[in-house]
Nucleic acid binder design. Structure first.
Length: 954
RNA sequence: GCCGAAGUGGCGGAAUUGGUAGACGCGCUGGAUUCAAAAUCCAGUUCCUUCGGGAGUGCGGGUUCGAUUCCCGCCUUCGGUACCA
């Protein structure tokens, strides 16, 4: 009766589906627990062994909580709208709906293979109209609300219209782009279009012209978090800044709450820091500089009002509205040339040479409000249009960039801070004593900042202000495969939200999904869909990838509800996510947007909690080994074997350099692979293919490779040498390992436990099958505890004290470690217990039954099989967790390590209740210890009961 | 540059509150079993050693009876971020 994982696993997987074992219902009598995984984007490549790492961890935790009596919500779904499916469609002509459905099926098979306890009745797919109906609905809610700073929450736009009609906007404190103040009479005299334009400045979902990240290759705009290093995160295409009419979400209205509420979350510090950095709060002053000979007042933001006497010039962003007016005729040409130059620079170019400052003089001068000094006004692209006010006062003495700019243009530098008391302080540190600053002279910098803030406010020059790096989220995509906007425009171009009863607005089925050149969405070409009666038209952009994922965790609570995004009963019961497991790559995108939407729904009273994810854990990546092979040759001169690493070149500032490869291994024999598993990736370099990609043929300068034989063009013997490095698992590196293959060979229980055994869940580590045999051996050993003479045999005898100790040590260790998500040490604890039980030949029900329960969250199939063989009717996964009893761990005697000056020299066994003085005396008497004390004075003896004894001699 | 995390045997890693450093597993060595191999089982496995002992958790210092753990200063690696005024 050998352990046969595959047949056991298939049997139970089918049984669980039949019995709906993992179905979960709202049950007000039981406490809830919500364990969530970040749902996957179903890509064409399928799951590799890295994906399930987090899913296994969350599954173990969910099962543990279930055994502990919680009503556990543990769902799964698919983030199914988005760019990759569409890119694939464009390349192959396969409709995204088709390829997405096929990918989802494949993911489901792979997931099912691993024995997860998901309640599939709650599955969501973001591309399903029944789902995105509510994505559209939430968007409409955002559209129909504004952020009222007085009440500190979102309020209906209709309220705002009421206020405007009665009193204008002067007293409204709101997150808005509206600058002009109007009276009630003025509001009433506006036509519908004008009123709608004003309201747009208040709505949480609004449409306006903004500078956006335009990606020509993808034919769409991207959100800030979808752009990395000036290129698109998806595909790596160049991105440029461009003004376009776009939908945006006013996430900045929630910046302060998004920042403050991080404090109460059980997230890693680094994750909180990442979000805090992204929000980027800074305190300072907003103030105005007058311009000589002009009515314009330049508004600036500064965190260093103390340095204003050192402000020797000003810099505006090249796109700043005042630039044309401030440019003098003499400087016209220079400025135009500079703006043209700035426009040609892509984001990537700009980032590539950050150290290089560029700019141009407008010819105009501003007046320093505190000393009436005339300071020249420049433009420069190191000043960003959309941060602060797009204009700065430049203080070259205390800011590195301003300093570089002053150097380049030969501008005056006035020292205003004496840093001599602070050696090592850098230019931008807020340290030192004010000089050359009239009334500030002699003050410390922090005091000077406060003094200036007060003066600025008291003379009405400006006010204190808080600025955020966080920008509003650009919400339009000029793509096909996304949620259509539930927005229609009337003949005057006024945007109207669709009514709930008309939702979902389904994505029209079209084969014409390629992005258009220019900024037109593919939907714009489906004219009979776009054009409505009476000259009304539909919005043709679609929503971005983060739309559907910003609220999916709420839908799981009541996934099939057609009257609401989820019933209030369900939302009030399930509340929020207790444990959320997923990758760090979503640190600022998905996690920020979800928190924003959740807070908005909270303001509306639609969800009971202020934050969606109480505890967040980021699982590490499982990396692959990237194996490269080099040709090994004989050097004709020295007759030594050499490796020619023609491809191992490094590009650096000095040009290309070649790196010698130290490894000399005959790949073919060493790894037992066949040479047909090689493919050429460079002149003399090959990559090790997995068997499923076989059939390589190539011709190179060095020779010809065909049918597994390499013939060198210059004759001579050839071998392969390999070099390996650790990196991301990716199809292009031929290092993807499919979990199905591992499961086929070792079983799903072994795969699950091995992934956990690899190391801490939060750590990244390379996949390495070397250790899997250890886990496989353990499972067989555990199974064998139940087998005597090839028969399933269980003894009803009462357990011994020693056996109970083994069991309860395991119960304590495993449950403590599960609580702190330390699954690798859980597996070790199971191994220890199993080894010990094997040693004492224990097959008693009283012990093994509890062990099966303990193991159930990990080896989900094996434990179910054993549970049944032990004679139980229901599923082990609906049983209850073993109860730990401290009494079984109590020892009569304790072994103490005895140290001399902190170094262990001997051990001694004492009764558990031995007194300190007895132990001291006995310890000193031990011969081995005597030897060390001899000729020295015992100064002190420290006895930590139950722990150790330390003798201090001198 | 800034922010964050981490450096422990041949390898993955353990040590939860400052208390026996190296649990557990892989690998390796020796043995049993076998015609033989696989599998299994048993023993050993941080390094050095004159076999008394000595050294040892990235490096240098400090606090402590006692430091992988706390403090100060460095080094390295990996993530994040980047003209944010």
């Amino acid at each position: 009766m050998d352990y046969q994982p595959r047949s056991i696993e298939q049997k139970w997987q089918q049984q669980w589906v039949k019995d709906k074992t993992y179905r979960v219902e709202l049950d007000a009598n039981r406490p809830k627990y919500y364990v969530l995984d970040m749902f996957p984007y179903p890509s064409g490549a399928g799951l590799h062994v890295g994906h399930p790492l987090g899913y296994i961890a969350s599954d173990i935790y969910a099962r543990y909580k279930r055994l502990r009596g919680f009503n556990v919500l543990h769902p799964m779904g698919y983030d199914a709208f988005g760019l990759p499916a569409e890119q694939y469609a464009i390349q192959t002509g396969v409709h995204p709906a088709k390829s997405t459905a096929a990918n989802i099926n494949r993911y489901r098979e792979q997931l099912d293979n691993l024995g997860f306890s998901f309640d599939w009745d709650r599955e969501v797919q973001t591309c399903d109209p029944n789902y995105y109906k509510w994505t559209q609905w939430i968007f409409i809610q955002l559209f129909e609300h504004y952020y009222d700073q007085t009440s500190g929450k979102a309020q209906p736009i209709s309220d705002l219209q009421g206020i405007f009609t009665k009193q204008g906007n002067a007293n409204v404190k709101a997150a808005t782009a509206q600058e002009t103040i109007f009276t009630a009479a003025e509001w009433q005299s506006m036509d519908e279009k004008a009123q709608s334009d004003v309201l747009m400045n208040y709505r949480l979902a609004y449409r306006t012209v903004t500078y956006v990240n335009w990606c020509e290759a993808l034919g769409t705009v991207l959100a800030n978090d979808e752009v990395k290093d000036g290129i698109s995160e998806r595909g790596g295409h160049p991105v440029e800044r461009r003004p376009m009419l776009q939908w945006s979400l006013r996430i900045t209205a929630y910046a302060e709450r998004l920042l403050n509420d991080l404090n109460d979350l059980d997230w890693s510090d680094s994750m909180k820091k990442m979000q805090a950095n992204w929000i980027g709060r800074s305190e300072g002053a907003q103030l105005f500089f007058e311009v000589e000979g002009s009515d314009h007042k330049i508004e600036i933001f500064t965190t260093r009002p103390d340095t204003i006497f050192g402000a020797t010039f000003m810099v505006l962003a090249p796109e700043h509205d005042f630039v044309p007016d401030l440019t003098t005729p003499e400087q016209q040409k220079t400025i135009e040339e500079y703006i043209a130059y700035a426009n040609t620079r892509s984001e990537r170019d700009r980032m590539a040479d950050v150290k290089e400052v560029t700019g141009a003089f407008t010819g105009s001068y501003a007046i320093n409000p505190f000393n009436d000094a005339k300071v020249p006004i420049y433009i420069g692209d190191y000043v960003l249009k959309d941060y602060g006010t797009g204009a700065i006062m430049a203080v070259p003495s205390d800011d590195d960039r301003d300093n570089a700019f002053a150097d380049k243009f030969g501008l005056e530098i006035i020292d205003v801070i004496d840093k001599s008391n602070y050696p090592g302080a850098t230019r931008s540190d807020k340290l030192g004593i004010m000089i050359n600053s009239l009334f500030l002279d002699g003050m410390e910098v922090p005091d000077a900042i406060e003094e200036m803030l007060q003066r600025i406010e008291s003379i009405g020059l400006g006010k204190r202000q808080i600025n955020y790096k966080l920008r509003d989220a650009i919400y339009s995509r000029q793509r096909y495969w996304g949620e259509p906007f539930p927005i229609v425009y009337d003949e005057k171009g006024v945007a109207h939200a669709m009514k709930l009863e008309d939702l979902p607005l389904e994505l029209p089925d079209s084969e014409d999904f390629k992005p258009a050149s220019g900024a037109q969405s593919p939907l714009a070409r489906i004219t009979d869909w776009v054009n409505l009666p009476d000259g009304w038209t539909r919005e043709t952009d679609t929503m971005p990838g983060f739309a559907g994922s910003s609220w999916y965790f709420l839908r799981y609570m009541d996934a099939n509800n057609s009257n609401a995004f989820a019933s209030q009963e369900a939302v009030n019961y399930w509340q929020d996510v207790d444990l959320y497991i997923g990758g760090t790559e979503h640190a600022v995108g998905h996690l920020m947007y979800s928190r924003f939407w959740h807070k908005f729904l909270y303001d509306k009273g639609l969800v009971p909690t202020n934050e969606p994810f109480k505890r967040l854990v980021n699982q590490g990546m499982i990396q692959g080994v990237i194996e490269s092979i080099f040709l090994e040759k004989k050097d004709p001169q020295t007759d030594l074997r050499i490796v020619e690493p023609a491809i191992a070149e490094k590009e650096s500032a000095e040009g290309k350099t070649f790196v010698p490869i130290p490894v000399l291994v005959d790949y073919v024999t060493e790894y037992g692979l066949e040479s047909s598993h090689l493919t050429q990736v460079g002149l003399d370099q090959f990559r090790a293919w997995r068997p499923e990609y076989a059939d390589a043929t190539f011709v190179s300068k060095s020779g010809t490779y065909q049918n597994g034989v390499f013939t060198a063009s210059n004759g001579g013997p050839l071998k392969f040498a390999t070099q390996s490095e650790v990196g991301k698992m990716s199809k292009s590196k031929y290092n993807v390992i499919n979990p199905d293959d591992v499961v086929e060979r070792y079983g799903a229980d072994c795969f699950r436990m091995y992934e956990m055994f690899l190391g801490p869940i939060e750590q990244s580590k390379p996949w390495d099958t070397k250790g899997i045999d250890g886990v496989s051996k353990f499972l067989r050993k555990f199974w064998n505890l139940f087998i005597r003479n090839d028969q399933f045999t269980i003894s009803e005898e009462a357990p011994t004290k020693a056996e109970l100790k083994i069991l309860h040590t395991a119960i304590k260790k495993v449950s403590d470690d599960i609580e702190r998500l330390s699954f690798n040490t859980c597996v070790a604890a199971f191994m220890v217990a199993t080894n010990e039980l094997t040693k004492v030949k224990c097959n008693k029900r009283a012990i093994l039954e509890e062990m099966v329960l303990l193991l159930a969250p990990f080896a989900v199939h094996l434990s179910e099989e054993l549970w049944q063989r032990l004679g139980h009717e229901g599923s082990v996964h609906h049983a209850s967790y073993p109860v730990f009893n401290e009494a079984y761990l109590k020892e009569d005697e304790v072994e103490y390590p005895i140290s001399i000056n902190g170094k262990k020299r001997a051990t001694a066994v004492f009764a558990a209740d031995a007194s300190k003085s007895d132990m001291e005396a006995a310890a000193v008497a031990i011969p081995n210890i005597q030897k060390w004390i001899e000729g020295k004075t015992v100064r002190k003896i420290i006895v930590v009961p139950g722990r150790m004894i330390n003798i201090v001699v001198g």
